[in-house]
């Protein structure tokens, strides 16, 4: 993706509406984020933070409005340029840490970075050959983070990313996000807790 001019990358939504289970979660939502910027989506429970991330990831279809990415890789769709880190870790307990990570690296494709290095960064180098089922919740989250490092994608969609991470884990993750932003990446995170990096807040949920 060397041909992409990251500085001009801009993710925007115009009049986005989300309806789930017959209930309107939000409507007429406008947002924009440019490369190098982190957006923190806040709002009370049920205001649609997760839904917004899933809309951007293409996992939900908007009931109205559009979401577009300008200045990204023209050959790829928006979801294909996103990393989605949801509540669930997408890990198989029967496979080892290395097998889990190398599967996602192979399957997601694109540029592949040294994954031993990624595992060391997230603090799992000692567990490479252990089954993922032996990991604690925080370690599973760390392994999911290693996926974001092994396969490079410009947009990170993070849903409560610091859940289950301890203080050192949150520091480590803050560093990773700063690195990502400095390389011209873009972060949209749904969160209650401060992320430990400079963010622009997008508050949703005026709807009753």
């Amino acid at each position: 993706m060397s041909g992409v001019d990251r500085d001009k990358m801009r993710l925007s939504g115009r009049g986005v509406a989300c309806v789930r289970g017959g209930r309107e979660v939000f409507a007429g939502l406008d947002f924009a984020a440019v490369a190098g910027e982190a957006v923190a989506v806040t709002g009370r429970n049920g205001s649609g933070k997760t839904s917004l991330l899933r809309l951007i990831a293409g996992l939900l279809v908007p009931a109205g409005g559009t979401i577009a990415l300008e200045g990204g890789d023209d050959e790829l769709t928006l979801p294909e340029q996103c990393h989605y880190l949801g509540h669930r870790d997408a890990l198989k307990p029967a496979l080892s840490v290395a097998e889990n990570l190398s599967f996602w690296a192979d399957f997601l494709g694109g540029e592949r970075f040294d994954f031993a290095g990624s595992l060391a960064t997230v603090g799992l180098a000692h567990a490479t050959h252990l089954p993922a089922g032996f990991l604690s919740a925080g370690q599973r989250r760390r392994l999911s983070l290693a996926r974001l490092l092994t396969v490079r994608r410009p947009i990170w969609l993070l849903d409560e990313p610091t859940n289950a991470l301890d203080v050192t884990g949150q520091d480590m993750f803050g560093g990773l996000m700063r690195d990502h932003l400095s390389r011209g990446g873009l972060i949209v995170a749904a969160t209650h807790a401060p992320l430990g990096i400079e963010t622009r807040e997008l508050r949703i949920g005026g709807v009753t």
Binding site: G58, L76, E80, Y84, G86, A90, F107
Partner: peptide, 13 residues
């Protein structure tokens, strides 16, 4: 259940 399907759906494949 473990969220893998989301990532499979989003992939280039």
């Amino acid at each position: 259940e473990d969220g893998s399907l989301d990532l499979i759906t989003m992939s280039r494949t």
